[in-house]
Design a protein around this nucleic acid. Structure first.
Lengths: 200, 200
DNA sequence: AATCCTACATGACCACAGTCATATTTAAAT
DNA sequence: ATTTAAATATGACTGTGGTCATGTAGGATT
């Protein structure tokens, strides 16, 4: 590895380290680029050589967290249990992983939307939460059909989307609710309902 | 009405008029407060006497559009048709009302989230899209139960939330998709699924 | 009609994200 | 070694949203 590459990595790490600390200390909005660059002992312009915007930095944290979460999930859900339980476990686990820090999650979702708004989810490049989750659910459901636990006649794709919808909606409502209720029950109830159907 | 009140209304209208025109001409982001105030022939500070932020202005447009839409809906859905169709009509109608201007809708949703993020949907004051839609669906479903078109055993509240979830999710996915497919079919398919259930 | 009070108007000013021309450091070429 | 080229660093500068102390005009009080 050349000297240049070493320095680059070093600088990027320094920015992470410092900004991570500052964000925790005083929040994202109250931390300025000037502060970060001063603490990291680099010029202001240098920051923008590594991250195009302040938000891009935040986004990196999101990606890292997601990476970890999804890898955990894939292990966890490999167990062979009833399809419905598997789906419940998955969605509840995901939801609970946000439960630790409501404010941060709000911020991240917000920045995420801001991001996809400006970039427009270019050409499948971004396998975003949505597609990823949807795909996993899709697999679960197909498996469920094979095992006879899910109706054979349904469109698995639409079913996966519906469950994804239920999940995201629950998280959103929970995030912006004042009182701290358990999101798990909510999701669980909706999944039951989707399995049973509401038509008579 | 005093002269003061008249001037106030006049100024507010002027800001609307001018900003509406400029937003259409060059987009929200590319329109500066300086431009708006110059065109409206007011001081820059004056703008902030009427709207706390630039986004607040945008939000007003949202509210006005919503007001119109919901009043139309309440008339439209009074007709006595099968519950499922009623729900389909409602959600498809709502979704299609966004279909005319994808970019603007994105912007509005984004600003809306930004707004509720900062204010936190204080104390029921904001009867937001979500609660409003959820309530209408709730009524529809209860009516459906009475008419025997919806299962009696289910929790109507959860069912309403599930349908709301399906709706919002469809709109979101549609908004940020590249290709222009029909959102109506999507929603329609999901509603069918929720009525039938996916469990075997 | 003179005085006072209050609501509103105003633009100089500030904070901060992001840019860019220039400088510096590293690597390659000779 | 020297020169050349390319990558990276830098901070003065800019654009813009938002603030605030001060000014001004409408309306009440005498």
């Amino acid at each position: 590895m050349s000297l240049r590459e070493k320095k680059k990595i070093e600088t990027k790490n320094k920015i992470f380290e410092v900004s991570g600390r500052l964000f925790k200390e005083k929040g994202f909005e109250n931390t300025t680029i000037d502060e970060i660059t001063k603490e990291a002992e680099i010029g202001k312009g240098t920051f923008f050589n590594y991250f195009p915007t302040k938000e891009a930095l935040l986004l990196y944290f999101v990606e890292q967290k997601d990476e970890l979460t999804y890898s955990l999930i894939e292990i966890e859900t490999a167990r062979s249990i009833p399809t419905k339980d598997k789906i419940k476990n998955l969605l509840v686990f995901l939801a609970e992983s946000y439960e630790t820090d409501k404010e941060l999650t709000k911020l991240l979702i917000f920045e995420y939307i801001k991001y996809i708004r400006s970039t427009g989810l270019k050409s499948g490049e971004d396998q975003s939460r949505h597609h990823r989750l949807s795909k996993i659910l899709h697999d679960f459901l197909e498996d469920g059909v094979k095992k006879g636990e899910v109706k054979g006649g349904i469109d698995v794709k639409i079913a996966a989307e519906t469950l994804t919808a239920v999940y995201f909606h629950s998280v959103m409502v929970w995030l912006w609710s004042e009182n701290d209720y358990s999101i798990s029950e909510d999701i669980s109830g909706m999944i039951d309902l989707v399995f049973e159907g509401i038509g008579s």
